[in-house]
Structures are given as C-alpha cells and as structure tokens.
Write a protein that binds this DNA or RNA. Structure first.
Length: 512
DNA sequence: TTCCGACAGTGGGGTCGCAAT
DNA sequence: ATTGCGACCCCACTATCGGAA
C-alpha cells in the first residue's frame, strides 16, 4: 500500500465531520491493507506511530526538504525509515536523525509530507483517533465493534487485534482476555462539583481518598512483577519499592490498580512534582533529592487474582477481594455510603472528604458499588471531587489560536497585581472558553493591543478575568516562583478594574 | 423531539535524559 | 556547566455526532 493512499484517506477523513463517514473511509483503507500493512496503517490513521518514540519533534520538523514529484513510498518504507530513526543514539545522533528524516521526507510528495509531518509531530488532527479506528477495523472485518473495542482495551494494541482479526476472522477479538503481565487500559473518572452532586448521580457508592501521584498498574505473576503507567509504559525498573511490596502480598498472581505516592514520616503526601520527578528518574541514586524520594503504593482496585479475571464483578465485590489480598496500609482509605438518601450517611461522606483534605489529599473519588471495571473508559461510575479555588487576574497578553481557534486570540497570559502596580505573570490558560467568549475576547483584546509579533499579542493590563485552579506549584519560569495548576477561565469580570485584581500576596496565600 | 455518552481538539506546567553548545 | 529538545507525568474544558430516551 502506498503512503499516498493513506494520506489521501486522512484528508477525506478530515474533510467530513460525520463520524460514520470517517469510519467508512477508515474501513475502506483497512480492507485494502495487506496483513503486513494493517498493523502499520491502522495506527497511522489513529494518529499514532508503532514506534512510539522517534526522537523527532517539532523542532526537527521545522525544516523540510523539497518534495518528490510522484508518490513512490509504501507504508512499509515509511515504517522501516522511522524504526531506523528511532534507533539512532549517541554522539552525532541529531545530525544522523536529520539525515534519515530528510531522506524520508525527500521521497515524499507534498501531500505525503503534509501527512507525515503531522503524524510524526503527533498532531494529525483529522477528527479520528483510536475510537474511530476501532469502529473502522470492526466494519472492515465484520467483527462486532464492542468486541473489538474490548479486545483493544484488554491489552491487545490496535495492531495486535488487527493481526488476530486477519489471521482468525471476526471471532478473534472474543479470544482476548486479561493476561497477567500485559497491561490493561485503566478505567478513568469524570468530575463532579461536590460530594453531594456525586452522591446524587451515583446512588450507593464508596468514597475514597484521592492521592496526587502517578497512576500505576501492578502485575505479579509468581516472582515476576511488572509496573505500568496510565499510558501503559512499563516503569518496573524505576519503582523497586513497588516491586518489593507486590512480592510480599499473600498471593501468587494478581493485577492491582493504584497510585504511586510519596508520604513523609507523618503520613502526609509530598507534592506531585516530587513524585513525578522520582518516577521519571531512570538512573539509580543520581544524588538529587527527587531520585532518592522513597515511593509507596496505595491500591484501590484489583482486576485479577490467582488466574481469575474480576473486571465484570461489581465494585463492591472487587473491593472485598482487594481487602483480602492487600493489607490495609497499602489500600486507600474508604467509606461506603450504602444509602445516599440518608442525610446522616451524606454528612459522614462530607466529613470524610473534609478529613482527607486536611491530611493533604487531593480530594475524593466516589465509585458506584454496582459498577464493573470498564477498561479504557471514562465512565459515569467513577466521579472525582477536588476543591476548586478562584482568583481575579489581569490579562497581560494572548496568543493566536490554532486549528478551530485559528484567527482567534486563545491562550491568555495571566498576571497578579504587585504593590507597585505592575503585574507578575502566573501562567497561561486556554480552557473554559466558549466560541462566543473567544470571539468576544479577540475583539476586546484587539482594542487593548500594544504589540503583535504574529504569535503573541501584548495588551494594556486592563481586562480582569476570574480563573479557577486546583492549587499552586513551584515554578522556575514565572517571577513569583509559583504557577497555577490546571488554570481555566470561569468568566470575565468587566465589573472590576485591574486595580481590584488579586495580588501576588493573595496568590501566595494558597500555598499549602 | 430532546437528551446525553463518547470523542476529539486545544492547549497548560514540570521534570528527566540526552546531545549539543 | 548550561541549554534546548523530546518524551511523558499530571490534566480541564467545549463542541459535536449520533444513538438513547
């Protein structure tokens, strides 16, 4: 199969907003792909590379050689080239990657280059990713879409499921099971405003403390332990403490879902930044603070034990198994609310949430007691509740948006007032803006503009905006030494002048 | 007919490893 | 020793399609 066929399909997919039409195009390409090509073409049209890491990013992709006149590249050629690029390392690596990349791009037509640049850059933006690729694969092979989805989530990558479908026919996805040692896409949560809203939405549920760390899935098969992240990267070698803890459990085979965290002597959690730094450290005992921070795990779910898959069991039953398999010190704190219509029970849930916040936790998770573990889905059965803070800040500048925000001022630079009347930038946000707000702010900020370099528009610091955020984190980039975590726009405050905006002092009051 | 679940897009900050400077 | 890039940890929110109610 030629790369140009794939590039043309991607253009067709991007050209329609109809998901069924996108799926039809995907199915057509997958049908035409040979057995060796399908495991390459399917990830490509899901916007991903089978290589995952190539060492090539936006900077390398800035300079592009002249395009070829006619298409000649096959998807196999592209895959081999990218595998070679990903393997480059050591002194001179940059130049060698550059050389190999130029060879690939130089053999591509303009249309193919356009596709490759966005694919390698991780910004295909054709309105279809994994979910529609799954639909397309099901349509192409006659398999049931829900079965294909389940097989992919259970650890077959898209490519692996495609191979099985081509080899064994439409029944193949049903053969995929959870296997100890092969990671499953973790179940995700939605947000709720507060505990009461969550209780109303869920009915009988468990309330759990939510710790701010790194999601981990721990597989133990006898003496063999493997640890995976939320995106299924293996990090076993970086978390020897968790491996040790898993080996001490009174089982021979288990799959656990939990969080890697760092607790101090008093049991209070360290900042997320410190946990992430430690998890990201590959070299042992590098001497920095982060690399020596001891980690521990808190588990909140069990997906399999002693060869038995538990995904379909209701939450309450999985929790019962978890309590048998994992000692209390390695489990999240939990309160069961059997009857959310009982005001006493609701009050105890609110108290529980307040308690865990006092102990430095990030918030709480509420989980419906009757829900199965739905791998890879952000279902309505798990709800997270975190406290939200707000500040009134001044817009210092705005950046021109991309994609559907092209031509609109999008990303806002936010500042807090200093005593001398100047402003300290605290970070940026593009979140929470409706199309109407984008149109309005483009116009309004345009009238306040003092400069525009085509990327950033600086404005007179006069417009006040209410910003919600989850907390502060330390920053070496911004002048106050802190930045806002997960900042998003709530509303414009045209009733306030910049002299009424919140001060740096007020901001620093949010430090823990 | 209206509602709502699932998806994709639009980007945010920090930190580490590695190669280049 | 410092800097820049790439990769990956955390993520919120809105718009839209299409099936459910």
């Amino acid at each position: 199969m030629l790369l140009s066929d794939v590039a043309r399909a991607s253009e067709e997919i991007a050209a329609t907003r109809s998901r069924s039409a996108k799926t039809a195009v995907l199915a057509g390409v997958f049908r035409a792909a040979g057995p060796d090509e399908a495991p390459i073409v399917i990830p490509y049209l899901a916007g991903r590379l089978p290589q995952r890491r190539t060492g090539v990013g936006w900077s390398t992709l800035r300079d592009v050689p002249a395009p070829a006149a006619a298409p000649s590249l096959t998807v196999g050629d592209v895959d081999r080239a990218l595998t070679a690029i990903a393997a480059v390392a050591g002194p001179g690596a940059r130049a060698e990657r550059r050389r190999l990349l130029d060879g690939l791009l130089g053999a591509a037509t303009e249309r193919e280059q356009h596709f490759l640049l966005r694919l390698i850059g991780g910004e295909l933006r054709q309105g279809a990713l994994d979910a529609l690729a799954v639909e397309g694969l099901a349509a192409a092979t006659g398999a049931a879409p829900e079965e294909v989805r389940r097989a992919v989530m259970l650890g077959g990558s898209l490519g692996a499921v495609a191979r099985a479908l081509l080899a064994d026919g439409p029944g193949a996805p049903a053969g995929f099971r959870l296997e100890v040692g092969r990671p499953v896409l973790p179940m995700l949560a939605r947000s709720a405003k507060d505990v009461d809203e969550a209780l109303d939405r869920l009915g009988p549920c468990a309330v759990e403390e939510k710790l701010d760390g790194v999601r981990v899935q721990v597989h133990r098969d006898g003496g063999d332990v493997r640890v995976f992240t939320r995106t299924l990267d293996e990090i076993t070698g970086r978390l020897p403490e968790l491996v040790g803890a898993a080996l001490e459990l009174p089982v021979s085979s288990v799959v656990l879902d939990g969080e890697a965290v760092a607790l101090d002597a008093a049991g209070r959690p360290h900042a997320f930044q410190d946990v992430a730094g430690r998890v990201g450290t590959r070299t042992e005992g590098a001497g920095t603070k982060a690399s020596t921070l001891p980690l521990s795990a808190v588990f909140f779910d069990v997906l399999a034990v002693e060869g038995r898959e538990l995904l379909a069991l209701p939450t309450a039953e999985r929790h019962a198994v978890l309590a048998r398999v994992v000692p209390e010190s390695l489990r999240v704190r939990r309160l069961v609310v059997a009857d959310p219509s009982d005001e006493t029970a609701r009050a105890s849930a609110r108290d529980f949430a307040a308690d865990v916040l006092r102990d430095g936790r990030e918030g709480v998770m509420l989980k419906a007691l009757d829900a199965a573990y739905v791998a890879g889905r952000r279902g309505a059965a798990w709800l997270k509740v975190k406290p939200v803070h707000t500040l009134d800040l001044v817009i210092l500048a705005a950046e021109w948006g991309h994609g559907r925000r092209h031509g609109r001022l999008s990303n806002l630079h936010l500042g807090a007032r200093r005593p001398d009347g100047s402003f300290a930038m605290l970070g940026k946000t593009f979140k929470g803006l409706t199309d109407d707000m984008l149109a309005w702010q483009t116009d309004r900020l345009g009238s306040l503009a003092v400069s525009d370099d085509g990327y950033v528009v600086r404005v007179r610091p006069e417009l006040v905006v209410e910003i919600a955020f989850d907390g502060l984190q330390r920053s070496s980039r911004y002048p106050a030494g802190v930045t806002l975590r997960f900042a998003r726009v709530v509303r414009y405050r045209e009733d306030k002048g910049p002299e009424e905006a919140d001060t740096v002092e007020t901001v620093l009051g949010f430090l823990p």
